[in-house]
């Protein structure tokens, strides 16, 4: 168990190191001189030199990289080259917003998907199962921003039940916070619910074919109680992986949904930075997202170890 945690942590660090080099390379080195990017091709050499000295881009690349990384390790994202704003405060502020809607969306998705997927699996040979299966299949195909756009149109603009966009932090006004957070979370969660429903369904169907479920029935369980006592926990192991992967995907999916609802999250910040060619901000925002994605994968791997005793003892599972 301990060796496995150490091994996973090692992988985490290695992945982050490689990823940070890649991000730095792609965003700082490949696009060319940041000074030219910032000041335009017509800038005088003196102005460029001045800019470089001011922002430290005249130093060797490795020093710039280490400087950047050193800052990240202390949660210091530096200052934007373009806007001159303090990125640290900005990113930390925005990341909360994104995490809130992603978290709410996933919660919503799980609340819908787990019962629905199980139901679809149990009845997978009957009409009910087909209906749920078909509906989730369609749901997976719908882009989350279409859901968002339709929600805005019907719930916000036409019915005027909820605001079409904007954001109020929960500490400021909890009621208003909820009114603003619900639609983005629903837009993110609906599609996720469809995706996870499908995975829950196939995991449960898979587990219903397992010999040990037959054993449970042979020792006095009904189909249903066998599934509840032995099936769901076993089906949970693959579902946890999927939830992890989807959570990572939602962080990125949130970029688009934040755009639809004008939510000031990390995604909006990223798109603005891209449009302003603020590569230094892009670099730090992307790295923040990568850290979150990798951290989620790490937690999933850990959970896996906790859920499955076969991974705990280190002894190989016989094929």
């Amino acid at each position: 168990m301990r060796t496995r945690v150490a091994w996973l942590a090692g992988q985490l660090v290695l992945t982050l190191a490689v990823a940070s080099v890649a991000v730095f390379w792609v965003l700082r080195v490949l696009p060319g001189d940041s000074a030219v990017v910032a000041l335009g091709v017509n800038a005088t050499p003196e102005a460029l030199d001045q800019w470089r000295a001011a922002h430290g881009t005249d130093r060797p690349l490795i020093v710039q990289y280490l400087d950047w990384m050193g800052g990240l390790l202390h949660a210091d994202f530096g200052t934007s080259f373009v806007t001159g704003r303090d990125l640290t405060a900005l990113i930390l502020d925005r990341v909360q917003v994104t995490l809130i809607i992603v978290g709410l969306g996933m919660l919503l998705a799980l609340l819908v998907a787990i019962p629905l997927g199980t139901l679809a699996a149990v009845h997978h040979r009957s009409a009910w199962g087909t209906v749920i299966g078909g509906a989730s299949q369609v749901g997976v195909a719908v882009p989350n921003f279409l859901v968002g756009v339709l929600l805005v149109s019907f719930v916000a603009v036409r019915a005027r039940w909820l605001p079409a966009g904007g954001w109020v932090p929960p500490i400021l006004d909890p009621a208003e916070f909820w009114r603003h957070a619900i639609l983005p979370a629903v837009a993110l969660g609906t599609v996720q619910a469809a995706i996870i429903t499908r995975y829950v369904r196939s995991a449960v169907i898979e587990v219903m074919r397992e010999d040990f479920l037959r054993t449970a029935r042979a020792s006095g369980h009904t189909r249903t109680t066998a599934l509840v006592h032995h099936g769901l926990r076993n089906a949970g192991v693959p579902v946890v992986t999927v939830v992890g992967v989807q959570l990572a995907g939602m962080l990125v999916g949130a970029i688009v949904v934040e755009r639809v609802f004008v939510v000031p999250g990390l995604g909006s910040l990223l798109v603005d930075a891209v449009n302003q060619r603020d590569l230094q901000a892009v670099q730090s925002i992307v790295m923040t997202l990568v850290v979150l994605v990798v951290a989620i994968n790490f937690v999933v791997d850990l959970l896996y170890t906790v859920l499955d005793p076969r991974l705990r003892t280190g002894r190989e599972v016989r094929a």
Binding site: T15, A19, L30, V252, V256, V274, V282
Partner: peptide, 25 residues
């Protein structure tokens, strides 16, 4: 495989945004 797995840290959409920022969308 480890090399390929590092890419997992970059979901496709994020990678496309990074590339768009660096090389023009």
């Amino acid at each position: 495989m480890r090399g390929a797995d590092v890419l997992l840290a970059f979901p496709g959409l994020l990678l496309a945004i990074v590339f768009g920022a660096a090389f023009g969308a």
